Computed example of a mutant assay.
Amino acid sequence: MRQFISFTIILSLIPSSFPASADTPQIPLNLQEFEIGDTSSYLQVNNMPSLADLLTIESSASIFYSYARELALSQLFADLNSSVWDGEPKPTVGNAGLTLLVPTNKAVMALARKPHQGPPPKNENEDITISDEEFHKLSKENVQKWVEAHIIATFPLTFPAPTVTYDTVLQGKSVSFTSTQSNGEDEDWETVTIEDGIKILNMKQASNGILYLIDGAIDVE
C-alpha cells in the first residue's frame, strides 16, 4: 500500500521517451468494434501522410503522442479501418476523418496536474492509500479520458460565427469554437479560439483527418 499522491510513482508514469518509437507494439486491452463512416470521401489521397505520420514528425507534440500511444485507440491515427477501440461510446467517424486537437509540449508541461494524474481529489488533505495495481489502473483511465477529450470524430470542421460546439469522443464532453469573424461562413482556423481562449497555432491535413496544434489543453471536466 502507498500514498495515492506519490511523486516517485507519478514521475514513473510520465512517458520516458518523446516521441515513442514507431516500432513500439500496441497491445489493446479491450477489442471492440469501431464503426466507420463513408470511406469514399475525398480524404483518400495518395501519398498524403496519416495523422500518425504527422504526430511522429511533430516534435512539439511528442508528449501528447506519447500519452496517446499508450492506448489502443491511437491505432486509429494510422488507420481508420482499425477494429480497435477501448473507449465508450464507439463513434462513427464523419466523412472518414478525425480532428485532433493536439496540445504542444509546453502546454502539457504547464498543466498543474498532468494527464495521468487526473483531476485533484475532492479533499486534498485526506490521507488516501491505494494499491499499485489500483493506482496504475486509475492512471490509465485518466490518460484515456484526456486523450479522448482531444479527439473529435468529425472532419472537416466548420466555424460559423460566433460559436459552434462539437462533441469529442469522450462521452459527455463537447468543445466550443469561437470565431472572431463576423462572417458566418468563415472557416479560417486562424480566427478561432477554443474553449476559454486556447489558440490554434498550426493546422496540418492528413489522409485520415486534420491536426490542429493548440497552445492549451482541453479540460476533461
Score class of each variant (00 low, 15 high):
F64N: 08
F64A: 08
Y65C: 13
Y65P: 08
S66G: 14
Y67D: 11
A68D: 04
A68W: 00
R69Y: 10
E70M: 15
L71H: 03
A72I: 00
L73W: 05
L73C: 05
S74A: 10
S74T: 06
L76S: 14
L76H: 12
F77Y: 05
A78K: 12
D79Y: 04
L80H: 03
N81H: 13
S82R: 03
S82C: 04
V84K: 07
V84W: 08
W85P: 00
W85E: 01
D86Y: 01
G87Q: 07
G87M: 04
E88D: 13
P89V: 00
K90F: 13
K90E: 15
T92G: 11
T92N: 10
T92L: 14
G94C: 12
N95H: 08
A96I: 04
A96K: 09
G97I: 03
G97H: 02
L98C: 00
T99H: 00
T99K: 04
L100W: 02
L100G: 03
L101I: 03
V102Y: 01
P103F: 04
N105P: 01
N105D: 03
A107E: 04
A107R: 09
A110Q: 02
L111D: 02
L111C: 06
L111P: 00
A112Y: 08
R113H: 04
P115T: 00
Q117C: 07
P119A: 13
P121V: 02
P121Q: 10
N123R: 11
D127Q: 12
I128Q: 10
I128S: 07
I130N: 03
I130A: 01
S131P: 01
D132R: 14
D132L: 15
H136E: 14
H136D: 12
H136C: 13
K137G: 14
S139K: 10
S139Y: 02
K140I: 09
E141Q: 13
E141R: 07
E141N: 12
V143G: 08
V143Y: 02
Q144P: 03
K145V: 09
W146K: 09
V147A: 06
V147P: 01
E148W: 06
A149G: 06
A149F: 06
H150G: 07
I151E: 06
I151R: 04
I152L: 10
A153S: 12
A153G: 11
A153I: 00
T154F: 07
T154C: 08
T154H: 13
F155A: 13
P156K: 11
L157G: 01
L157I: 04
T158D: 14
